[in-house]
């Protein structure tokens, strides 16, 4: 396959043939993934880290960065394998198995590379990386991109935007929970219950974005 053919394959949606780079559609995807269909607050993906790592602002930022990073790489890997390997060979039913293996090995690889070449970054992200394999937001974005039949460009944009949306929700939640430490919460609601109530109120706020970006 020569370079031009490869490029057009990568930029085209698998279904509708070649489709240019539409800035309007790209903005719509970005706004939809960050605000309207926020991964945590409206799609319910990645709830476990959202509750588990949102007690401290620093760790929330670290987790968010790690998720954006892995999400982008996982989308690149899963999209390529699905459209250039599984579909041509008629093996698209292996999607779920292939994706989870890609994500698991990718996380392992990123962990090893970071440990070797960037100990500082490894120290910052290290403890979050193993947790990410079972973060359903990563597998979720990979599957969503295939279901929506996005081209590789749109898929990557969608992945980055979804990661930013996740980080936004996580950081906001961490800020609220730090305030909550000092609040007088009824004893029965202490801990998880009040965290869910706060998440619910945030989710109501995010409902206000409905209709934006189409």
């Amino acid at each position: 396959m020569n370079a031009t053919v490869l490029l057009t394959t990568l930029l085209a949606t698998p279904e509708s043939g070649s489709q240019g780079f539409d800035l309007g559609k790209m903005m719509a995807i970005i706004i939809a993934s960050i605000f309207v269909n926020n991964f945590v607050l409206s799609r319910f993906l990645g709830i476990c880290p959202f509750l588990g790592v949102s007690k401290q602002l620093d760790s929330a930022v670290g987790m968010g960065a790690a998720v954006i990073f892995v999400m982008t790489l996982a989308t690149l890997g899963s999209w390529t394998v699905y459209n250039l390997l599984l579909v041509p060979m008629g093996l698209s039913y292996l999607r779920t198995i292939a994706f989870i293996l890609i994500i698991a090995s990718l996380v392992q690889l990123v962990e090893m590379i970071l440990q070797k070449f960037s100990p500082a970054l490894y120290k910052a992200l290290g403890i979050f990386l193993p947790l990410i394999t079972t973060n359903c937001a990563i597998l979720g974005v990979a599957v969503l991109n295939i279901d929506e039949k996005y081209s590789l460009g749109y898929s990557l944009v969608n992945a980055i935007a979804a990661g930013i949306g996740f980080t936004l929700a996580l950081v906001l939640m961490a800020g609220l929970r730090q305030k909550l430490e000092l609040a007088d919460v009824p004893p029965a609601l202490k801990g998880k219950p009040v965290a869910f109530l706060v998440a619910g109120l945030m989710s109501i706020a995010f409902l206000g974005f409905a209709g934006l970006g189409g």
Binding site: F44, A188, G200, I204
Partner: peptide, 25 residues
């Protein structure tokens, strides 16, 4: 309507977990 939208899930689960806490106590 909010019960069926996303916020309803969070809020109702929060109250259910609170109820279980009281039960435990």
């Amino acid at each position: 309507l909010i019960a069926i939208l996303a916020p309803g899930a969070f809020i109702l689960l929060g109250f259910i977990l609170g109820f279980f806490n009281i039960l435990e106590k």
